[in-house]
Amino acid sequence: MFHLMKNLVNYLQKSGEKRITIVVIGVDNAGKTTLISSIKGEVPMDLGPTWGFQDETHKMGKYHLTFYDVGGGDSIRGIWASYFAEVHAAIYVVDAADPDRLGETKEAFHEAINDQRFKGKPILIFANKQDLPDARKPADIAKDINLDKVLDSEYHITMCTALVEEGQPFDDNIEKGVQWLVDRVHNNYKSLDERVQRDTELQRLEQERKQKEQAERVRKMKEERERLKAL
């Protein structure tokens, strides 16, 4: 696997392609997994709530995009931040037809963009599910989630319908939105990518340290168990 990755990286460098990693976040049921399928031009399947990690890739111009899809449910949301170090940008998906969840949506949004590992990176907000009656428009969602309080990141909000039936066209707003985000990253690629590389390496070292500590704790626990057994 490592070999494969290395080959891919070499290939991308030779062909002048660049990599952009984008994390897709938002509360559960917002439509993140559905959106990523639509970005790729694949008819979405309903896989139920995501409680994990799935990476999907898509080419756009000279960029090789990788989307990270992690769950948005209450009990899994806390893991978002562990992906921020290595992303160049984020997409935040909002269910514009579910007014009851806007408070939670706003809170999770601000917590994410203020995380040190994310701060300053560009973010695209999709007011999703525009096919549903009474879906709120981007201008309303912008107010609902206090978008004007975002000071450090370039941001853009647009509407979309991520869900699509077999044989139906995909919503243009999706590609346009993603293009906006890719352009923002493009304009600032060198410094953003340097930050990403540096933070990713720091995070890797930190994770390695934690795993070593854990291995040591487990070893001690096993020893203790053996000792008690021997008594």
Binding site: M1, T50, W51, G52, F53, I76, R77, S82, Q211
Partner: peptide, 24 residues
């Protein structure tokens, strides 16, 4: 245990080379 604690305890957060999912 809740999902986040499971993900952390199992070191799932450092996985990048495969898809993973927790199913309660």
């Amino acid at each position: 245990l809740p999902a986040k604690e499971i993900a952390e305890g199992l070191n799932l957060l450092s996985i990048r080379d495969r898809k993973w999912q927790i199913q309660a």
